[in-house]
Amino acid sequence: MTPYLEIHQSRHREPTAYEFKLAHTLEEIFTHVGHELADVIEGLNARQVHAPDGKPWTEQSFRDEMHRLGA
């Protein structure tokens, strides 16, 4: 039997504008800056893409948000 993969099968809803912006910015950081957590935090803060509470990202706030988003 061939496995069936439905596109976006893990989504429960469409991503929000915030989630799209975060994803796009993360792709840019991974492409041009690096993959280390410190690089990601620095890249997000340099681009002023703030944490959900409006504050600059920390390693802990990023981990918490990725956990909340299910990433």
Rank of each mutant, 00 (worst) to 15 (best):
T2I: 12
Y4I: 13
Y4T: 15
L5G: 09
L5W: 11
L5K: 12
L5Y: 15
L5C: 08
L5Q: 11
H8S: 11
H8R: 09
Q9M: 12
Q9A: 12
Q9L: 14
R11M: 06
R11W: 09
R11N: 09
H12P: 06
H12I: 07
R13P: 02
R13T: 01
R13V: 02
R13E: 03
R13M: 01
T16M: 04
T16N: 03
A17I: 10
E19F: 01
F20M: 11
K21G: 09
K21V: 09
L22Y: 03
H24A: 15
T25M: 08
T25V: 08
L26K: 01
E27L: 12
E27P: 07
E28H: 09
E28N: 08
I29T: 11
I29N: 06
I29C: 05
F30T: 08
F30I: 09
H32G: 01
V33K: 02
V33P: 04
H35V: 04
H35W: 05
E36N: 06
L37A: 13
A38F: 05
D39W: 02
V40D: 03
V40W: 03
I41A: 00
E42V: 00
G43Y: 00
L44G: 00
N45P: 02
R47E: 05
Q48K: 13
H50S: 10
H50D: 12
H50N: 10
A51Y: 07
D53C: 11
D53E: 10
G54E: 15
K55H: 14
P56S: 00
P56Y: 01
W57D: 03
T58S: 04
T58F: 04
Q60P: 09
Q60W: 13
F62G: 11
R63Y: 12
R63M: 09
E65P: 09
E65M: 14
M66G: 11
H67E: 10
L69S: 07
L69P: 07
L69K: 05
G70E: 15
G70V: 15
A71W: 15
